[in-house]
Computed example of a mutant assay.
Amino acid sequence: MLTSTGSVTALRRYPVKSMLGEALTSVDVTPDGLRGDRTHAVLDESGAIGSAKHPRKWGRLLDCRSRSAGDGAVRVELPDGTHLMAGDPELDQRLTELTSRRVSVSAAAPQRARLERAVPEYAGGVPDAVRATASVDGTGERITVGGTAAGTFFDFGRIHLLTAGSLRRLKAVHPAGDFDPRRFRPNLVVDTGDEAGFAEDAWPGRRLRAGGALFRVLVPTPRCVVPTLAHDELPPDPGVMRAVAREHRVPVLDLGRLACLGVYLDVLEPGTVRLGDPVTVLDGP
Score class of each variant (00 low, 15 high):
residue 165 G to H: 05
residue 166 S to E: 07
residue 167 L to K: 01
residue 169 R to P: 03
residue 174 H to Q: 14
residue 176 A to N: 04
residue 176 A to D: 11
residue 179 F to G: 10
residue 179 F to R: 03
residue 179 F to V: 15
residue 180 D to V: 13
residue 180 D to N: 15
residue 181 P to S: 12
residue 181 P to L: 13
residue 182 R to M: 15
residue 184 F to A: 00
residue 186 P to M: 15
residue 186 P to G: 11
residue 187 N to L: 10
residue 188 L to T: 06
residue 188 L to Q: 08
residue 190 V to S: 06
residue 191 D to G: 03
residue 191 D to W: 00
residue 192 T to E: 08
residue 195 E to T: 08
residue 195 E to I: 07
residue 198 F to N: 02
residue 200 E to Y: 06
residue 201 D to L: 11
residue 204 P to D: 01
residue 205 G to K: 04
residue 205 G to L: 00
residue 207 R to W: 05
residue 208 L to V: 09
residue 209 R to Q: 04
residue 210 A to G: 04
residue 211 G to F: 02
residue 214 L to E: 06
residue 214 L to I: 04
residue 214 L to R: 07
residue 215 F to Q: 00
residue 216 R to V: 00
residue 217 V to D: 02
residue 219 V to I: 10
residue 219 V to D: 13
residue 220 P to G: 09
residue 222 P to H: 07
residue 223 R to P: 03
residue 223 R to H: 05
residue 226 V to L: 15
residue 226 V to T: 14
residue 229 L to I: 10
residue 231 H to A: 09
residue 231 H to E: 15
residue 232 D to S: 11
residue 234 L to Y: 08
residue 234 L to W: 07
residue 235 P to K: 12
residue 235 P to V: 02
residue 237 D to A: 08
residue 238 P to A: 10
residue 239 G to E: 09
residue 239 G to D: 11
residue 240 V to A: 10
residue 240 V to C: 14
residue 242 R to H: 09
residue 243 A to Q: 06
residue 244 V to F: 11
